[in-house]
Every structure is written in C-alpha cells, then in structure tokens.
Amino acid sequence: MNAPTILAALLGATPAGGGAGLSQIMGLVIGGILINNYVLSRFLGICPFLGVSKQLDSALGMGAAVVFVMAMTAASCYVLWQLLLVPLHLEYLSTIVFILIIAALVQFVEMVLLKFSPALYKALGIYLPLITTNCAVLGVAVLNKDAGYSLGLGVVNAVAGALGFSLALILMAGLRERLEMSNTPDAMKGKPITFILAGVMSIAFLGFAGLGV
C-alpha cells in the first residue's frame, strides 16, 4: 500500500480507487477553509467573529481554542451518536446530547488546561466559556451527523472548519486594527463599518467558489 491509501484508510475515508479518499479529504480541507468558510459563507460563529476581532492577540487565542474544541467535539459527538443514540433509537435527542457534550467538554478542557498548562490556560482561558455558545461548534456536530461522515472525516471537517473560522477572525482583527486609525463617517463608526468590512471579505472569499473542489 502506498502512503496516500494508508492515510485515507486511517482517516476512514471510503476510497473507490486509490486516491479517491485523499481527494475527498482535500476537498473537505479546501472547502472548509476557503469555499464554504464557516463565518463568511455559512454564517456560523458570527458573535465571536464580531466580538473577539478587535485585537490580533485575542483573535489568535480564540482561533486556537476553537480549533481544539471543534476537533474534540466532532470526535466525541461521533462516538456518542454511533455507540449510544443510534443503537438505542434515540436519534431525536441529538440536539440535546450534542449541546451537553459541548458544554461538558469545554468545562473539562478548561479544568485540564488549568491543571496541566497554566500558561496556555491564561492565554485561552477567557475564551473557552464563550465557545459553548459558538454556533460553529454545534454546527459542525450537526453537519457531520447529517453528512454521515466517518470519525476521521468528521474530525478533518471540524479542523478545516475551525481553521477557516480562525483565518476569517485573524484577517478581520488585522483589518480592524488598521480601521481604528482611519477616518470613518460618524454613522458608520463601530458595528456598521465592521459589517461592511466583513461583506467585502465575503466577496473575496466568494471568488474561491470557482475552485470547484
């Protein structure tokens, strides 16, 4: 077996030929980061996108925390869905179970970080509680379930989505730091200009739709 096939097998893709699995993974990665960017084209996670994009440092911290939590969410939601809800025919409880997993997971990550890596906790700490109500996190759990991804593909999808979220957040933070210095009309100050800026970024990202992955 060559390397791509092994990778694809590890990730649980269903390759029709040797490379089909890998191209599916690449599709998810490019799609999640650029084409179907969670913030700019799916409108998931708008609140932290607007709230935590005032400074580059906090945007980086939030981005890292989201990547971490989304990957863990995708994995644990998949496991509970497959091992508990489906065998017991409790599919209709998915929303309740998923949100509880996320809340518990965020709390857990917070405690573990506090215990084992106080420095990282200090950097991410204040953003962690906010993640529970980040709709990108619940969104990825629901999207994975609806698409019927395997464990590996689900985690790839989550990480790609979270990286896309972080990319948008970090770009926005950089732009807003410049915006502080510029002269905007009175009525546009604050939220309105931020939305228009997000719109311009969204137009740019719309261009990636041409990639056709």
Binding site: L40, S41, F43, D186, A187, M188, K189, G190, K191, P192, I193, T194, F195, I196, A198, G199, V200, S202, I203, L206
Partner: peptide
C-alpha cells in the same frame, strides 16, 4: 441574496439606525 449582501446590507441598516438615533 448571496452571503456578502447580508453583511453589507446589515452594515447600512445599522448605519441608518445610528442616524435615526442621532
């Protein structure tokens, strides 16, 4: 009706509200 339109129009609607308030 594409995603960018939502952001840009929301910006203008919020600006209109700010003008009304003032």
């Amino acid at each position: 009706i594409l995603p960018p339109g939502a952001f840009v129009l929301m910006g203008f609607v919020l600006a209109a509200f700010a003008v009304i308030d003032r």
